[in-house]
Nucleic acid binder design. Sequence first.
DNA 1: ATACATAGTTGCTTTTATCAAATGTATTTT
DNA 2: AAAATACATTTGATAAAAGCAACTATGTAT
Lengths: 309, 309
Amino acid sequence: MSVNLEVVQEVSDFNGYYTGLVELLNRHISESSISLSALRVLVKVRQEEEITAGKLVETLGIDGGYLSRMLKAFEGNHLVSKRKSTADGRTWFLQLTAKGKKLLESLEEQSNAQIKELLSPLADDQQKGLAAAMKTIRHILSEESQLSTSDITFRRQLLPGDAGYLIYLHGSLFAKEAGFNLAFETSVCKAFYEFLETYNASKDQVFLALHGTQIIGSIVVSAFSRYVVQIRWYLVHPDFRQMGLGKKLLNEALDFCREKGFQKVYLMTTSKQEVATNLFKKTGFRKTGEKQLSMYGQQLFEERYDMDL
Amino acid sequence: MSVNLEVVQEVSDFNGYYTGLVELLNRHISESSISLSALRVLVKVRQEEEITAGKLVETLGIDGGYLSRMLKAFEGNHLVSKRKSTADGRTWFLQLTAKGKKLLESLEEQSNAQIKELLSPLADDQQKGLAAAMKTIRHILSEESQLSTSDITFRRQLLPGDAGYLIYLHGSLFAKEAGFNLAFETSVCKAFYEFLETYNASKDQVFLALHGTQIIGSIVVSAFSRYVVQIRWYLVHPDFRQMGLGKKLLNEALDFCREKGFQKVYLMTTSKQEVATNLFKKTGFRKTGEKQLSMYGQQLFEERYDMDL
DNA sequence: ATACATAGTTGCTTTTATCAAATGTATTTT
DNA sequence: AAAATACATTTGATAAAAGCAACTATGTAT
């Protein structure tokens, strides 16, 4: 994969900037008679069950001899205790003592106090923006993008800005993934306008998946008649796919439809949306119509799917 | 200002995460016979003009004696040179020699190589997302938000997603700042739909201010007739205000109108937009009408401003 | 002129970290 | 089963990094 030079520059700049900040945030450590390496060891020991010295050397990239002395000191201070492995007489399992845990907690409290000081001059939404940006960085860099369910929340309410953001997502994603032009965004815009004008929270229901405060997935149930509903604006942001989010949104929407006593559900899509249509078919939808069109700058089939609830 | 505990948690987590990453990115330094502190000193000396040892002690939180020895070593290696202050015989101004600059550059190159390796498994838009998030963090935390012109770019083209994002910005910002309800976003949505439907790049012109790839300011010139244009969707994101961005966008738009030979320009706004209306007046607009309305969940005056070009 | 403050240096010490050899425990080979 | 080898950890010796306190030299205030 090619690397964008501007990105390298930004990462480098950020690195320089944040290194200074880390220094600031970790300064309290130097005043607490514990070295940064020692702290890393303690944190790792707390984090991992049944960790051995060798494992620490491996994961923390620390010298074995140095670690051995550190651990001896920790034992002397009753911060860490050792338990001999029954399977292998050479190794010892390490764990924090109550005192060790308490020490870590107090250090974290100090660190948090410093963070609070750093944050205090910031307005509330700046703080949230900061947290979201940090979450994004961790998310992108943590190889497996394994934030999964824990960092994703759901919302069933339509708040100001949501409609626009959904139009934005549709416009930009479909342009990128299906090659649709501005005409597509125009039609989404029109449809949203009409939806909003007659929006009725008791009949129409949105289901939004959020990462922080940002929408990353959506599905909307919109009443067509007393017994028929349409499913619209079904979408998951590419960074958050393959996590079962799409299936979850779809199921929630269908559950809602059943709950409300609707009997038929349909949706419109295009032949370009293969992944979605496969999921529709698997869920019980059947293709009930298609029409070849030249629109959105593409040759495509507009398809209709129906299902009895 | 109150501090959100979730934000503190995220900053703390991020800090822990990034400390590990910094470790990784700076590992090459340990192989280059220069300590991290030494590197920080060199970077600071390059960054600052006329820096003194005392200043370094203060800003880097480093011990004076240690620094003194380091500087002596740097002088011995011809990486840094001293120049006696004429005003104060006790102090010396430090600067990098050509050799010092070269060393830093080569270290940065190594660091960049490591960054490239880190980035290489990421898809292009993930890389961009990463850079944007980092930029955001620096922007929020750098007290003066002094990125100003350097990190903000402009675009005059309307790309897919832009319309939706502008609707989103209008919907969310006006809800927050003026208390407008969903009806406002609905009307923006309608207006955008109509605009897009008849969009003609030779008559209608958008001016977008961007931070990374994200829109942070906008103004749109939309032809009303052969001689009359309307200015619409004028907005600057709160994080980027007070930087002259609004004035710049407005002036660019008006210049464009004059260039294209339009003779009259008007715009609609509400009594809630005080900052904007003040700027309009200062630019030469005159209020030509107002109407008290109950809309968007508010009691407000809809105002019209006109100007001859 | 004297006392005090400031900028930077030097001597001494502690802390942090590394390398290599040693110890004791498993595992494999013969 | 004994010897050889591998592995997990410890110990000894040493070096580099960092800190403290006393000191020199220059500047400022009374």
